[in-house]
Amino acid sequence: MNLVEIVVLGSIIGGIWALVASGFSLVFGVARILNFAHGTYFALGAYFAIVLDRELKYLMPELPSLIFSIIFSILIVGLIGVAIYKTCIKPVRKYEVMVILITLAIALLFEKILLAIFRDTSVSVPFPISGVITVSGIPIPYTRLMALLVAILIIILLERFINATKTGKETIATSQDMEASMLIGIDVEKVYTIVMFLSASLAAVAGILYSQIYAVNPQTALRVLIYAFAIVILGGLGSVRGSIIAAFIIGFMQVTVSIALEARWAEIAAMVAIIAILIVRPRGLMGVE
């Protein structure tokens, strides 16, 4: 087994998972919402970018078209995240089971919509520069290098946002004590909205990067969700920093299992981890109440 291969491939996929899981964890930490539709934002991010790019290409050169499509897609998915929260999640958010059922139904609904429009095929967002650098025998395409850099950059920005801005601090306050935050005049509903937007956009970024490297199909959303669960439970539900560390751990685990056994076992390993951790420590490792 090649250690370099595990580190290289694992950190690339880990970076993408970190984007998915940090938003997922943020929403749980702040709003106590377990959003089963989170994987859908991932898929939608990629699909919107592809469709927009296809259309914009007729209006402008390739590179600006790609950049515009990606930015638009991230914003649109962020807004979809907010819209789903306002229309579907908010009315039932007191009932945990209802939240799960409705978000799960939304996830499956979008899967069927994507299937009806795009059919059962894999698609990917184009990437303008082709080329490979080789690190001790492992070819790393520029796509992947870029994805890792973007992921790290966004994670740093997210940390800065949470710890250094006023809104970020309000977010932390809300996640620690919702009622006290309301008492000191924080607009909790606004915080929820911002967090929903952020979490959906982060997932969209991850989906775009993922589809540039690999590809997405309508069924990707649910598979991503499993990894997101495993990561946030390992890192502690609600803890953004814990999720980021756990994302890389899961990434390395995934590549190791893929090499040693087969890719399919990685998914089982993630699912068993979810159940085992929750049974042993019903609130997850380092989870919030």
């Binding site: 491939l9 996929i13 590809a215 199909n217 990707t220 590549v255 090499i259 087969e262 890719a263």
Partner: peptide, 17 residues
């Protein structure tokens, strides 16, 4: 001789092997 699951998108480790 590797079996691949329907819906697989990541072939990196298989290609390297």
């Amino acid at each position: 001789d590797k079996k691949v699951q329907k819906g697989t998108e990541d072939f990196s480790t298989l290609l390297l092997e």
